[in-house]
Design a protein around this nucleic acid. Structure first.
Lengths: 228, 228, 228, 228
DNA sequence: CATGAATGAGCTTTCATTCAT
DNA sequence: GATGAATGAAAGCTCATTCAT
């Protein structure tokens, strides 16, 4: 009874208002910010609303993030760039056919970014980069560069192993990227207000894209004349 | 009554400034607004700047468009013009390899849309559709649908003639579309604030994309294992 | 009745709401700003209050002055630095004893600065310069420098004509300046809350200062031993 | 009962941190606050910074001072210490030329007030007196009055002994005071952000002032016309 | 019709003060 | 006592919109 009051040993059901919240705050704010940035874009998101959604006051947000821009950067780091190490590790460890890696990469992107709110960040940057140069530079460095590097390394592996045709790497990267970015943008623009009949089913979309990317449109028999 | 409109007799070569300008006003405003909306997005475009660029005062703008939103809608509506009939005619008349048609279609899109202000409308719609559902529906109907139909008809032709592999048409359309849309978006976002070393050269970009789309990444020899 | 509506010819009693006010605005804002800056200092003066006192809204103030700093600079220009050309001209034209010029300079300073709200600016700068380096630099350039130059030229004239002893000019300037600055500060600090018995009567204060500055404390007879 | 206060036996050389600090707290806070108020003025000093400099938390500061205003008042009161008795004694004991006393008084003021933190209090009072009338009254009584009395007694001695001309004592005091106050203010305002070329060297400044105060600007030969 | 002066709600950010721990 | 997380009232500045002229 005497010294049982150690702050770390408490009845687990107790709310522990101050302390426990403090650890949870940044995450709650990040989650709220992600939602709102995705919903309204960077410029139209008001920090006060982010705070309210996270259940705190305006001032509290600035206790954890020194400005709206820093908040945004933290959102990007938490939802996108933070995942590269894991992805890179996974693909470096992978053995087997490079086409399989590519399929896997695209479906992993879907499950961990495309299918989450994080895809909204992609759309947002494509929409607003021109007006927030500092953010654009940050995104280029933290997200675009590493993303390109990852895709480039996969393509190079395929070419080195004789599995892929030799193509221009700089632009080849976009063959993989374009469908993903398109999907992210579509989902957060036309996709949210488009009639059911025109909805894109992401899994089917991606399956078709990866299949065509790998095998091409042209019938192998007639490939010699492949539209050159 | 016929010519009673002219308040005074003027030399016919005289520009008739006031009157002609009055008729031209909405068009001048729309042109100025297109430029700025494309450059800065909806939220960051200031109506005062639109007015200034059109050579009128802020108040005058509101004489023609009751609000910034209405101005935006008018801009989009005014710039979605169907080039489709012309294109459709061209492709229906075409004889020869379908892969060639596809190459031609993509390079025509670049020269008549991508490389002009019109690509700004594409960017605008992808960026702002979520905030303007009625516009999105309009765009879907006037642009997306006919565009899909055109691409679909090309792909179908290739498949019917045994030149293309049989693929899912609904999603196959995006194989052609995604790189174009991506390029349009990129040009108006990261492209305007990205270091020279990362710039995309549209022609090279498109050449690589069409090549891969047609022939695939996988080396024909090893295609049997094509990542299935 | 037909064309009598020329905007410049109106009944002089008519309020002429918009136009006439537009000309008067900057002056009204400057007057309000002077009052408040003097009363509360730069940092504690709220632009909204300046606007309110001038009878306009916050936004209107920014129509005329692009920032609070620019407003302050305009106040300084209108109330102090704008007066140098006139003073300089006056003293350059002056003929006669330099001591007379000095007396006149000090009493002119009193009537056109010290005895007006403008003296508050002097106090304000001495109080806040350290925290607003940009303002301080501006003040140094627009007010301090020309002020020193003016005093220096008077002292130099006296020395050149053999009327004044030869003294260090750089620090000699402060002999004239210090009493004036002291008076301005005192008036806006202790002076506003000090018992009647200790009040300074500016004219008497200045008379004593100028007399001592010119003739010194030491009795001429004993000057040889002047406290060395 | 005597030593029951110590919660445990400690080595006598141990600093007894908690307790000693507790007693020292107010003093440490006042010292930190003095530094910052002098440097930044009342409005721009943040209590959090005061607390940090004193090594405590923001909350603790409010345990000792109920508001920022109370802290400010305490700072001023704590730093208005009478050096007057000592000075008075010194000057009463002094024998010899009064001009020498005056020189000595001014250089002593510089070394024991002007050149120390104490000059900050002078600056603070001149800057903030208007906003703290009770403080101003206190300062008037504790500092201004005795200071005037001291200077007055020196001047009177000079006049009584026929060394000084007969001048108005009330305002004559300011002849001595104004340069000192000016110097203190300058040091803490323009002096900290003014280009090297305009810096004031206090010793040279004071030498010039005392010299002019004693001997006047006017050339003795021409003094008869002394600007009357 | 056209103007542009005027408005005021709204934005990000700061900071004295409070209070649960 | 001491802490520092939390608050929320300002503050400077912007800009879509109105309306007297």
């Amino acid at each position: 009874m005497l010294s049982a009051k150690s702050p770390s040993k408490r009845c687990p059901t107790e709310p522990l208002k101050r302390e426990r919240r403090k650890d949870a705050r940044p995450g709650e704010l990040l989650a709220a910010a992600l939602d709102l940035f995705v919903e309204k874009g960077f410029a139209l998101t008001r920090v006060e609303e982010v705070a309210k959604r996270a259940g705190v006051s305006k001032g509290t947000l600035f206790l954890y993030f020194s400005s709206k821009e820093e908040l945004f950067k933290a959102v990007v780091r938490a939802n996108i760039s933070g995942k590269y190490p894991e992805w890179t590790a996974e693909f470096e460890a992978f053995e087997g056919n490079t086409a399989v890696i590519l399929r896997r990469a695209m479906s992993m992107w879907w499950s961990s970014v495309g299918d989450t709110q994080a895809s909204g960040i992609t759309k947002l940057m494509m929409s607003e980069a021109g007006n927030f140069p500092e953010l654009a530079a940050f995104y280029q460095q933290e997200v675009v560069e590493p993303g390109h590097a990852l895709i480039r390394s996969i393509l190079k592996r395929g070419m080195d192993r004789g599995e892929f045709r030799v193509i221009d790497l700089k632009y080849g990267v976009y063959t993989v990227l374009a469908p993903l970015i398109f999907l992210a943008m579509w989902k957060h623009s036309l996709g949210i207000c488009c009639p059911a009949s025109h909805q894109i089913v992401p899994e089917e979309f991606l399956a078709t894209q990866i299949d065509t990317i790998l095998n091409g449109l042209v019938e192998p028999a007639g490939k010699s004349g492949g539209g050159t």
